[in-house]
Structure formats: C-alpha cells, structure tokens
C-alpha cells in the first residue's frame, strides 16, 4: 500500500465525490447526481498512479478508466441508468480503495433486492443503511457487509 500523502489525497477526493454522488441517489435527486457524476469524472481524470508499483499502476489505470466512463454516463442519464452505472462504479471504488488504502472508515453495504434480485453493493461513510439503489422507495433495505479500515 502506497502511503505517499499527495497520492492519498487524490484517492480521498475521488471517494468524497463518490459519497456525495451516493447521497444524491439516496435522495432520488437525478439532476444533483448528474452534476456530481461530472464532478467525480473530473477528480478521476486528475488521478495519477505513478507512485504505485507497475502492477498496481496497471490495475489502477484500468479502474480509473472504467470508473470515469461510468461517472460520465451518470452525468447525462436518467436516474434508473444512473443507478445501473453506480453499481459498477461502486465495484471500481472498492477495488481502488483496496490498492490506495484510505484514512476514512468505510462500510461496504449490500442490498440483495437491486437489479432483479442480483443484488448491488455500495460504499458509505455511515454505518446506518441509506439505500442509493432504491432511495425513498426502500431507504433502509440492506446490510453492512464489512468494514474497511
């Protein structure tokens, strides 16, 4: 795990943008989520993996490229599509944190009902469940899978 401070700062900024986006989806706020999707895409683009090992760089660049595409699509989609992209984006964020580490305490949470019962996971800074896939419709559906840090 790389512990370069400036590097961590960029990963933390990405995570914060991701959490803001998640909150917009929890609040069923399509236009806010669009805005925050674009903000996240910008943060992702400024990420620089050069301080990591070669294999980590490959993995990180792949994650960032994928996440950027999802963030950009969230910036221009209706809320159902935003949530679909958010599911894959959440996987990308989880994989990113596994490499970059974080100073925050993060909870991986899971709702088994999303995506025709295929389920969907997400990351949150709060232990309490607030479901970004269903919003007000099923706000508290889900459980904490694990704690990161």
């Amino acid at each position: 795990m790389a512990m370069d401070n400036s590097q961590d700062a960029k990963a933390e900024a990405i995570l914060k943008d991701y959490f803001n986006l998640k909150d917009a989806l929890v609040n069923d706020d399509n236009s806010k989520a669009k805005e925050l999707g674009n903000t996240l895409a910008q943060s992702l683009k400024s990420f620089d993996a050069s301080s990591y090992s070669d294999s980590e760089q490959n993995e990180l660049n792949d994650i960032i490229e994928d996440a950027t595409e999802h963030a950009e699509h969230i910036g221009e989609s209706d809320i159902a599509h935003q949530r679909e992209h958010f599911k894959t984006l959440s996987k990308d964020m989880t994989d990113m944190v596994a490499i970059t580490g974080t100073s925050m305490t993060i909870y991986e949470q899971y709702c088994p009902m999303y995506d025709n019962n295929k389920g969907g996971a997400w990351l949150s800074m709060n232990e309490e469940i607030r479901n970004p896939y269903f919003g007000a419709q099923m706000l508290k559906c889900g459980k904490v899978q694990r704690e990161i840090n």
């Binding site: 792949d62 994928d66 999802h70 679909e84 894959t88 990308d92």
Partner: peptide
C-alpha cells in the same frame, strides 16, 4: 473489468 462494463 472493461469488457464487463462494455457488455453491460
């Protein structure tokens, strides 16, 4: 990872 996203 990218294939998965593209397929989706």
């Amino acid at each position: 990872r990218r294939k998965n996203s593209k397929l989706r």
